[in-house]
Design a protein around this nucleic acid. Structure first.
Lengths: 233, 233
DNA sequence: CAGTGGTCTAGACCACGAG
DNA sequence: TCGTGGTCTAGACCACTGC
């Protein structure tokens, strides 16, 4: 009866979705085995598997060996957000990008990062302070620490032409990263740099990336007032 | 030479990842066809396909028919963030959750949402103002509009015991949602409700969910000071 | 222990889109 | 147009885990 192709895995996925939405299968209820569904749809079990795997990835069903597949009780709302390189983000807005390196220094690991950059405490890290512009207006302020144990080549780079962001993406691929987002009030310095009033609420993103167990870099990005991060479920 | 199983799709994925990280295949370069890789690893093409598909999903390679597979030039940083039901988020922190309904009213569609809730302008929407607590401290303040055309049953619900959030998740599954995150300064009202100083920077999330083309609900959540949203790449 | 999902195979046909 | 990825099949064995 389905209008969709029940022979393609996407078609099967749509039909399964429909049954979940229409409460043919209640939340928490177990749904038929792959083998049964395959028979019902007249396709190979692999195809049903593909459809169910996709639903499981989006969190709508929970699959366990032996226990079968159940409709999720509290379908988590998963959103994939793409964090582009700032230059691309700005250019996608139709604006002209440029950035300016405010500071470049070798510093001891700051206390905040001791737990993370567990490099020998005497060692220095490369500290970079960058301001990103969109059409000559401040767009985001970046503070970055680079682990020189992991990326020694960074010593040779000035990061004036291409930003550390881009250079690292191309030259020190990470395998894992921790992200966090928050809101903070602009202090005197930040306000001056981002050209706003002290106290203004600003959107901030922090990120640490790792290659295996070795931390590569820690970045804190503070966006100019009015920034919104968007995503779609 | 690889230490990983080269017969499992995850093993193959790790080996491909290694070659990308080690620059065996430069960014932008084309990598061998599935068939060649399958031969090299001594496995079925399907298995290589699975590994490559996974890398493509995470944005590390770009696949096109006829054109082959290339290492992405600017691997976008994709993060999957899971937005839980607030009650679960609070309980996961080991705190006690409760919520309090501050207001429940039928209102005309607010101007801000005219473009979205293109219901006949005379129609009312259900407006809800809720405060979420963690251990009796304000956790998040929620303002919500519910489209009664889409979810007429909401009229019957008081939303005092179970929150609108949970009720909707269970009773009006959405097919699509738009999310945005921002920072804002607490105004007098918000500050009073969230028990903070006016002007404090607060983290806010807005979400509109749809079922097909019909909007279900618009929510704006403003979190108490100090909130961080975390994610992992 | 045994049932369920997870994965792999070898082969086939198809759809897209670059050249 | 035709090479490349996308998908489907029928069958098999395996791994996990609830019963």
């Amino acid at each position: 009866m389905a209008l969709t192709d029940t022979n393609s895995w996407t078609g099967i996925r749509e039909e399964l979705l429909r049954r979940i939405h229409d409460r043919v299968w209640e939340p928490g209820a177990q749904i038929p085995h792959e083998a049964d569904l395959a028979e019902e749809f007249g396709c190979a079990r692999t195809t049903v598997n593909r459809a169910l795997r996709d639903l499981a990835e989006s969190g709508l069903v929970i699959r366990k060996r032996r226990a079968g597949t159940r409709v999720a009780l509290n379908p988590p709302q998963r959103a994939t957000l793409t964090i582009p390189i700032i230059r691309e983000e700005v250019e996608a807005l139709g604006k002209t990008y440029r950035h300016s390196l405010l500071e470049r220094a070798y510093q001891p690991v700051p206390p905040m990062l001791h737990g993370v950059f567990h490099a020998s405490l005497g060692d220095d890290v490369l500290y970079l302070k960058t301001l990103h512009f969109a059409d000559d207006r401040p767009y985001a302020f970046e503070e970055r620490y680079i682990n020189l144990d992991t990326v020694p080549e960074a010593r040779q780079r000035k990061f004036e032409v291409s930003s550390a962001n881009e250079w690292l993406v191309h030259n020190a691929p990470y395998s894992r990263g921790d992200l966090s987002f928050s809101a903070l009030n602009a202090n005197e310095d930040t306000a001056r740099i981002l050209d706003c009033t002290p106290g203004t609420a600003l959107f901030a993103m922090e990120r640490i990336t790792w290659t295996g167990d070795a931390p590569i870099t820690h970045v804190k990005l503070i966006f100019a007032p009015g920034y919104r991060m968007r995503s779609r479920i």
